[in-house]
Design a protein around this nucleic acid. Structure first.
Lengths: 105, 105
DNA sequence: CATTTACGTTAGTACATCCTTATGTAAGAT
DNA sequence: ATCTTACATAAGGATGTACTAACGTAAATG
């Protein structure tokens, strides 16, 4: 899961995911949004994102259409949420053991 | 914001934040949870986390007690949420312009 | 079949990151 | 005042990452 965080920790990759969040885009179009780097660089980022499951690829002839895998992104959100829920769980466990201690009296 | 993602993309740093999520811990205690690396390595991670605002430090004599900055983590969660809401915004904007087009008839 | 289009992949390089070891440094104990 | 404790910080090395330039490849087009 930390791997996904690291992958999105790169500005361009994060932007790419946002770009194809609600619409499929071909690699060329994605690359066009990043004029400061070569298409190769973007292709490599796409490879990383595809490999991690954050992007899905659909082939249409010679083109490759990318779109965000919202489900996979959802896992990341759950992971972040777990930071908050862990303390709740800990509180719950604490409350439970206190209850059991009381019953053992 | 991507910087924070990158920082948490490191396993140990992510674990450290989790460790001090609901309780303050001194640096030594944190380091003790990572027997495979030196205290120095952990101290450097603590520095990165403190610097990014993800951890807050409180000094108690010679010790330094760390705890997670949940507010800062909250920003990250909001950032992730923005991926979902951006499409909603786009849909809303689309609906609005459609409405305006109708009114102009 | 040759060419073009739209890509991915490889090789190589500059720079960043994570680590260890060594060296501060400030607070408390002797 | 010296020593110890609990840390940070600096220097240096191994490894990882993001990039460019060059090359490879499958699909469409003539």
């Amino acid at each position: 899961m930390e791997a996904m965080l690291k992958i999105l920790g790169e500005r361009k990759r994060c932007e790419i995911v946002r770009l194809v969040w609600s619409e499929e885009l071909p690699a060329a179009e994605i690359a066009a949004r990043f004029p400061d780097v070569t298409r190769s660089a973007i292709s490599q980022h796409l490879g990383v994102l595809r490999n991690s499951g954050l992007l899905t690829e659909r082939r249409d002839g010679v083109r490759r259409l990318y779109s965000a895998n919202q489900a996979e992104m959802g896992k990341l959100r759950e992971f972040l949420d777990s930071f908050w829920s862990q303390s709740l769980v800990r509180l719950r466990d604490l409350a439970e053991s206190a209850e059991q201690a009381k019953e053992r009296k």
